[in-house]
Design a binder for these strands. Structure first.
Lengths: 298, 298
DNA sequence: CGCGCCCTGTTCCATTTATTACAGAATTGC
DNA sequence: GCAATTCTGTAATAAATGGAACAGGGCGCG
């Protein structure tokens, strides 16, 4: 009883068949609860047939489904009984956990150091529809620029993702003006091409927002606002997770800054969407409907 | 549904008969768990007979015992789903710090639930240079596909980012084969076009790796490996931070899986780089040199 | 290309379960 | 102290559940 059934399941997941794995994942997704109902409920939530659930239980080492339920209940019982026993759970393997943990620490540290006034100022900047927004990223961070642009484009007009080769960037420059904003993502192995564009934009009077690592890209010298993030992880590569959370925070900020506009624009665009095939969705893990973008706060 | 069933029970305790009260108190003693088993178990635990339990349930306003169980389960479900909901309610301003904190929690939760064997299996898949890798993302998650592709392309050959409109995707399909791998990012507001491509690929025998949210995209049914992540944040949008950390973990895994190859390829590409303007760098916060990608571990 | 194996879903049955009806016990009012 | 009433447990029932046997189908191996 020392290790949680959830861990057990994760371990034995390899020896499962495809559908059994779906059952396992469904159970892990909303962990103890799904296993406490009837087999049929479990099955329909996992999108498999009832016998598969029973076979899954059997493979986990339970002679009967009721045994699994009992195990689940007792586990839940003394978990609720002593909420202090939490720490004992996950201390197993250092390898993968380290990475995630350190990424978390990075994010926490990042936001602890991030001046709130800077954030607010940037949000105000991004929310101002009279300014054209240009987003630019480097080799890897271009994905972030794209990600942020995709969101901002929904929230407001005049959002431009500066994409492609450096040669083409020049074309964007001719349209930039004093009222416009350039958001640059640049982390180490700082790219000189980004710097060149930023300097050129700065000379045109463009307001520059720089999202960078804690050692600051050289672009900082021409930037109006600088948002530094922690990027070190136990890997040859750097982690952009903190940068992404900064981006998401800004997006959330802009959304909340003018809720009327956000709601209006989002629901307008909902009309045109062709996502979300309804006949597939119904009855899977159907408890949780997709977040309604037009409805702030879930 | 706003107040807990436990409170309800305490209120209505007065209108209970003697034995019913024993049942109620037994339930409150170890709160949700006792109500999740069979009536007989409940009865014997409370020291009363089965019909008394039924009568108790009826007095609480449930037409059937199953109804009570359902109520108990759903209550437990969203209590476990958001252990942060308690704090979020009382805290006056769901300010900036919350967002980062919750993003962190998401990442932690995600990795606590991620089956390690699945991760390893996927890393092995991505490291195998005999397989062509196709990366695909949705409206917002396309950025992640791009991000991951940018890294993988450095580590190995035959990496394809499936970009552009759905119409063009078909062109990629003709090249896909039994040995290839399709990595799909799909979170809620699941996109039917992604599903269509995935199903088509699955029919060709392509191995499909799905990175999704904890409610599982419908693509899960054709996926060989599923990596679910937590995405909920206090914003109308979902957070892809955990997805990104998953991607980065995979990248780090592939890098570490064959350090020789990684080092060789990275340093080969270093030769061609034209980043990093030297005359700007010197003397800024010059203490920290940029991470040398050719040198594993910082 | 065909054979065999393993996996998955459908159908059916036996068992357990929740539920009802009934009778005995306790309790309260007179 | 007796009777009416309410409460509680026992017994029986009907439904729903878990579980088992069966058959179709997909996959890989030869």
């Amino acid at each position: 009883m020392t290790k949680s059934l959830a861990e057990d399941i994760r371990e034995k997941l390899g020896s499962c068949t495809a559908t059994e794995r779906r059952a396992a994942l469904a159970l892990l997704a909303n962990y103890p609860v799904l296993g406490l109902g009837t087999v049929a409920q479990f099955a329909s939530a996992a999108g498999v047939s009832s016998p598969t659930i029973l076979r899954f239980a059997a493979r986990m080492g339970f002679s009967t489904y009721a045994a699994l339920q009992t195990r689940l209940r007792t586990e839940l019982e003394d978990q609720l009984k002593s909420p202090l026993a939490k720490g004992a759970e996950s201390a197993a393997e250092p390898g993968v956990l380290d990475f995630a943990d350190i990424a978390c620490t990075n994010i926490s540290d990042t936001f602890r150091q991030l001046p709130r006034t800077e954030l607010e100022a940037v949000v105000a900047l991004l929310g101002d529809e009279k300014r054209t927004l240009y987003l630019l990223g480097g080799r890897f961070t271009d994905a972030l620029a794209r990600y942020m642009a995709a969101h901002l484009r929904i929230l407001r007009g005049r959002v431009v993702h500066v994409a492609g080769q450096e040669g083409n960037w020049r074309d964007y420059l001719v349209d930039m003006g004093r009222k416009d904003v350039l958001i640059v993502f640049d982390i180490r192995r700082y790219q000189s091409d980004l710097a060149r564009l930023s300097v050129a934009a700065a000379n045109l009077g463009v307001t520059i927002v720089l999202v960078t690592d804690s050692w600051l890209s050289p672009i900082a010298s021409v930037a109006t606002h600088v948002l530094p993030a922690r990027v070190s992880v136990p890997s040859p590569w750097d982690s952009s997770a903190a940068l992404m959370v900064i981006a998401e925070t800004l997006i959330a900020g802009v959304t909340a800054a003018d809720p009327e506009r956000s709601k209006r624009r989002i629901s307008m665009l909902e009309i045109y969407r062709d996502d979300d095939d309804p006949k597939r969705r119904s009855g899977r893990t159907g408890e949780v409907p997709p977040k309604d973008l037009a409805d702030p706060q879930a």
